[in-house]
């Protein structure tokens, strides 16, 4: 309960910080909505020529985009440092979080808010509503999938970036991994062969963010539910374990920092 209060206080501080630069915040939000919309135009043009691709229609793609964009948006807006963890580790900026009595990983992740994430959230919810799958049960499943999607995005990046404890700076590696995760999460896994599907369910768990949740929101199925839940829990457990093991090797640093 105290950690929830702490998270709420952190998010409030993030909101206050973003309100110091309102115009920049609003611009980021608007441009991210436009950016996502422009990207989706490709699928609108595609489905104008073909009615479906391996059972996936334009509405299904809107649903998939809605879940993936919203998951990314929530992760970026509420846990914005999840893309910066490698840099935080390498530059010794974990010192700040380790000197305070709250869970260092949670504190580090939630101490930054990426304003454009709000644009992704708005776009994602809009895309879900327009997909035609809006119903009380569909909405509940959508929220569940966004929640697990957030966990998978964050956990995957924690694992990759925690390698910095052993390998040094993995910022470039994490950017490649993030790019792969994001790209593949926006395609239906029906397009890929069995080996690729296996990779997308394990090594680069993009299918657990995009196509599996989209199928689950379309119609409830236990195997989909178990895949998503188990994937999120295993990845989160692994992320926390890898990060904690890495902390024992943390070397801090003497870089002068001028702001938090």
């Amino acid at each position: 309960m105290k950690n929830i209060q702490f998270l709420l206080a952190l998010w409030k501080a993030n909101l206050q910080a973003s309100m110091e630069f309102r115009a920049a915040f609003l611009t980021q939000v608007v441009f991210m909505i436009l950016n996502n919309g422009a990207y989706f135009v490709f699928w609108i043009l595609y489905f104008d020529k073909f009615n479906e691709v391996r059972g996936w229609t334009l509405n299904d793609m809107m649903l998939l985009f809605g879940i993936a964009a919203c998951s990314w948006g929530v992760a970026a807006y509420f846990f914005g440092n999840f893309t910066m963890l490698a840099e935080i580790i390498v530059k010794g900026r974990l010192d700040y979080y380790l000197s305070l009595p709250k869970p260092a990983l949670l504190h580090a992740l939630a101490s930054r808010s990426i304003g454009s994430g709000m644009g992704d959230i708005i776009y994602g919810v809009g895309s879900f509503i327009l997909s035609g799958y809006l119903s009380p049960e569909g909405f509940a499943r959508f929220i569940f999938c966004v929640f697990t999607g957030v966990c998978i995005f964050i956990a995957f990046l924690i694992i990759v970036q925690s390698l910095s404890f052993w390998l040094g700076n993995t910022t470039a590696l994490s950017q490649i991994a993030l790019s792969a995760l994001l790209t593949f999460s926006l395609y239906p896994s029906a397009l890929f062969n069995t080996a690729t599907k296996f990779i997308l369910l394990t090594l680069v768990p993009a299918a657990l963010i995009g196509s599996v949740p989209a199928e689950f929101v379309r119609s409830f199925a236990w195997d989909g539910f178990l895949q998503i839940t188990a994937g999120a829990l295993i990845l989160l457990g692994l992320a926390v374990t890898v990060f904690r093991s890495g902390l024992k090797r943390y070397e801090s640093g003497s870089a002068i920092q001028v702001e938090v």
Binding site: A13, Q16, A17, E20, Y96, I256, Q257, V258, E259, V260
Partner: peptide, 10 residues
């Protein structure tokens, strides 16, 4: 001394 803990913009 070299690592501020106060939020810079607040």
């Amino acid at each position: 001394g070299q690592r501020p803990q106060l939020w810079y913009h607040l």
